[in-house]
């Protein structure tokens, strides 16, 4: 980036996701989309692609669109292929002198549309090398259909399809490490970020993802007050705890080189992140300490591996 990040300056840009959309109050996805689109250079156009999900049904309900840029939604499982098609059209029409100017291609999908049903489409688009930024707003479950587990849902989380009962204690499996899988695609830029603090980390990474040539992938933690069951005003706190407990580390991988973006001064215990959320409430009942221990052990192991890879 050519200039030093300045939040005040950035928010003075005309918003590309306008107010009046129908996302829930306190939704992580809305601020993430605003934040990512804010990283576009003012003079550049973009075509936004969106997988079916909360974001799509809330930001483009006929006859109103919340986007000032062109936008396309086609289906749930094909956002990356859809973006591929737009980019292919751009290349063809540019070659034939039918479009000019810089147009950037940005895709938004939730974790359902990215980790699960849209995974094949995403993997294919990354392998083909389309010039696009794929942004996953990861709220760790199928929120649009009413909070069902996805492969991104963390272990022990309660969802409508991983309920807590006499026999089962929420989701049985660990969260899929999609960011790592995207790194394995050997694409030029992969990063993990969150709507944190003054948004510098998110902004910087969004800029790199949008302006690095080739396929780039951003995984952004998107707190969901409904699905995670916490008060809607607490997004900033919850996000901060996810990062400071190392449950959601911030890092980037540029041309295969791992770089840790943030190491908390004091690594907080995982239970600090879990406690405020209703989806983990059963982990704090008497006799369930083993769950907290297992969750902590998993985070520690992932964090150590990240430190190793990033040489931090």
């Amino acid at each position: 980036m050519s200039k030093v990040y300045n939040l005040k300056q950035e928010v003075e840009k005309p918003p590309r996701l306008t107010g009046g959309h129908r996302l829930c109050a306190g939704c992580g996805a809305g601020v993430i989309v605003s934040g990512v689109l804010r990283a576009l250079n003012k003079e550049d156009r973009a075509v936004v692609t969106n997988a079916t999900g909360c974001l799509e049904v809330s930001t483009f309900m006929y006859p109103y669109t919340a986007y000032t840029d062109s936008y396309i939604h086609s289906a749930f499982e094909n956002a990356a292929a859809t973006c591929s098609g737009v980019e292919a059209a751009y290349n063809a029409l540019k070659r034939r002198g039918k479009v000019d100017g810089t147009v950037k291609f940005i895709t938004f999908g939730g974790d359902g549309g990215t980790y699960d049903i849209g995974f094949q489409s995403l993997s294919g688009a990354m392998e083909r090398g389309h010039d696009m930024a794929y942004v996953c707003y990861d709220n760790e479950a199928y929120m649009n259909t009413g909070i069902q587990r996805s492969s991104s849902t963390p272990r022990f989380a309660r969802t409508a399809t991983s309920p807590v009962g006499a026999v089962n204690q929420g989701k049985k499996q660990e969260k899929k490490d999609l960011t790592d899988i995207m790194v394995a695609h050997n694409i030029p830029y992969v990063a993990q970020t969150a709507p944190l603090g003054n948004f510098k980390d998110l902004h910087t990474k969004a800029y790199k993802a949008i302006y690095t040539e080739g396929p780039c992938f951003l995984n952004i933690l998107a707190p969901c007050p409904r699905g995670w069951d916490y008060p809607m005003a607490k997004m900033a706190e919850i996000t901060k705890l996810a990062v400071d407990t190392c449950v959601w580390p911030l890092f980037e991988v540029e041309e295969g080189v791992w770089h840790l973006s943030y190491a908390p001064k004091k690594k907080l215990p995982v239970e600090d992140f879990l406690r405020p959320q209703g989806r983990f409430r059963h982990m704090f009942e008497a006799g369930q300490e083993w769950m907290l221990e297992a969750a902590q052990a998993y985070v520690d192991q992932k964090w150590e591996r990240l430190l190793e890879r990033s040489g931090a």
């Binding site: 075509v47 692609t49 396309i72 086609s74 289906a75 499982e77 094909n78 292929a81 859809t82 973006c83 591929s84 098609g85 737009v86 292919a88 059209a89 751009y90 290349n91 063809a92 029409l93 070659r95 039918k98 479009v99 094949q120 489409s121 993997s123 294919g124 688009a125 392998e127 083909r128």
Partner: peptide, 23 residues
């Protein structure tokens, strides 16, 4: 622009998006 995709689902997705984009 020849896009050799990973499934028919994606070939139709590419066609839809490309046609919507003006191609």
């Amino acid at each position: 622009e020849y896009v050799a995709v990973e499934s028919e689902h994606s070939s139709m997705s590419v066609c839809i998006a490309a046609q919507a984009a003006g191609a």
